[in-house]
Nucleic acid binder design. Structure first.
Length: 462
DNA sequence: TCCACTCACACTTTTGAATAGG
DNA sequence: ACCTATTCAAAAGTGTGAGTGG
């Protein structure tokens, strides 16, 4: 197994031909900002929970980011995957989360491809990028391409941007990876923390019906009516039904939260930094095998949501050592599921769930790759999931450092597969250290074959 | 008995087709 | 004939609470 230093040597820089002037631009200035960080921090301060269901459930708050620093006419692909925060399963006990044991084997790893992908940098930069339609499921046999998670486990979304002309293009470039600590969450099948429920109801328009007393009353009355109907059918009228209708049937469960609202507001207004420290996870983190959270990690918890992509000089390799700590129990499963690793991207095509585009809408990737103004769909509502094949531990990893630039010369794959093979550890449950420290990475891929060997696409599920 | 999970429900927003008006 | 605005019904997204099963 190659050491990290060895790996780093492989990434020491792109071949001279790839070092076009545009590369510095590409490497040094890509910036991703989380939209609505206030809301995320509010949730995070309490301990974000995301419902997962068999048919798939959207996230709330949903991931929305802004990008800048892209080459306007170069095409990019934007992806999201969910990374386990740690190797534990949790339970909600006495108003707080507790470790309930070891994490279950990781479910099939799926990556959500933003439906606009691939699109020119100008498209990504002109408006915020929403992952509204991303859905989470606990159904390991899911056929809809939703991201599969385990309930009562913690995750955080990871955003990847890669310069690529085409989804089916062989030539891919350096990955830029971003994470936002405040977006971490616990996957649940039913809300555990009533404060989170309250927050969701307050902020999610679809849950408006649960907000104020008026509508709640209405809803309750309606429910009572239906109950009465049922009872009538049973020839049994319940005279107390009206009295049984308290103002706001949810209130009792939220009483504890009501008291905290002032504090919440206070936090919103001012001290967001403290909010991070109040996170219900902070104590857990300390308690749970976090070998002493480093001051660096602490400070990162309160970092700005804006991340600058390091230039090549300050380039940091992916935290391979973290992955190597404990082999994923599922990696072998993944290998079985996907069969042998495929040798070319073309053969992977069936693993790509092509976004369900409306045929009437123009496709971004169909537009000519020119800097001229192109009609781009403003909507970002095409669902799409990219499923990649397994990373085979025994398979050689990244072979070269390839930055593809539309301004540069065409490079063949062979051109970039040079230096010695770098072995990639099998994916596994990431540690919390990873989650908090790896705020931004960039790592190279000479083509999709190598790309799929990263834990990002740790294994296929179909 | 406990707890994670599923399902039907009422309510909401979103979407898209149909229609009207300029 | 074409474009834009409006209307309306269907679809989809919410949390709730009862029920189920391990």
């Amino acid at each position: 197994m190659q050491s990290i230093r060895d790996l780093k040597a492989n990434f020491s820089g792109p071949p001279p031909s790839a070092m076009a002037s545009s590369d510095a631009y590409l490497q040094g200035s890509i910036r991703m900002t989380l939209e609505d960080p206030e809301l995320w921090r509010t949730f995070h301060g309490i301990g974000t929970e995301m419902i997962i269901t068999k048919p798939g459930r959207r996230m709330f708050p949903h991931c929305k980011v802004n990008l800048s620093g892209l080459i306007p006419c170069a095409k990019y692909i934007l992806l999201v995957d969910m990374v386990p925060e740690d190797g534990f399963r949790y339970k909600w006990n006495k108003e707080k989360w507790e470790v309930a044991g070891k994490a279950e084997p990781q479910p099939p790893c799926r990556t959500y491809l933003h439906p606009d992908s691939p699109a020119p940098g100008s498209h990504w930069m002109k408006q915020s990028i929403s992952f509204l339609k991303l859905k989470l499921t606990n159904n390991t046999l899911d056929q809809h391409g939703h991201i599969i998670l385990h309930s009562m486990h913690r995750y955080h979304p990871r955003f990847h941007i890669v310069q690529a002309d085409d989804l089916f293009s062989v030539r891919w470039s350096v990955f830029q990876t971003f994470t936002f600590p405040e977006t971490s969450f616990t996957a649940v099948t039913a809300y555990q923390n009533t404060k989170i429920t309250k927050l969701k109801i307050d902020h999610n328009p679809f849950a408006k019906g649960f907000r104020d007393e008026g509508t709640t009353k209405k809803r309750r009355a309606s429910k009572n009516q239906s109950d009465l109907d049922k009872k009538a059918k049973l020839s049994e009228m319940n005279r107390d039904s009206e009295e049984d209708s308290p103002t706001g049937f949810c209130r009792s469960s939220f009483e504890t939260y009501e008291g905290d609202e002032a504090e919440l507001r206070k936090r919103k207004e001012g001290d967001e930094i403290k909010e991070e420290r109040y996170s219900p996870w902070s104590t857990e983190r300390e308690r749970n095998t976090r070998n002493g959270s480093s001051p660096a990690a602490e400070s990162r918890d309160i970092y700005s949501t804006e991340q600058m992509v390091p230039a090549l000089a300050s380039y940091q390799p992916y935290r391979f050592h973290e992955y190597g700590k404990s082999p994923s129990p599922s990696s072998s499963v993944g290998s079985n599921a996907s069969g042998s690793a495929r040798g070319s991207f073309e053969s992977r095509v069936p693993d790509v769930v092509v976004p369900e585009h409306d045929s009437s809408k123009p496709r971004v990737h169909e537009a000519a790759p020119s800097c001229a103004p192109q009609p781009l769909p403003s909507s970002q509502d095409y669902p799409g999931v990219l499923n990649m094949s397994v990373a085979q531990a025994s398979k050689p990893g990244v072979l070269g450092h390839h930055v593809y630039s539309p301004y540069g010369t065409e490079q063949t794959l062979g051109q970039w597969s040079g230096s010695g093979p770098a072995q990639y550890p099998t994916p596994h449950h990431l540690t919390a250290d990873y989650a908090t420290q790896a705020v931004h990475h960039s790592y190279p891929h000479s083509n999709v074959t190598e790309w799929s060997q990263y834990p990002l696409f740790s294994y296929s599920c179909w």
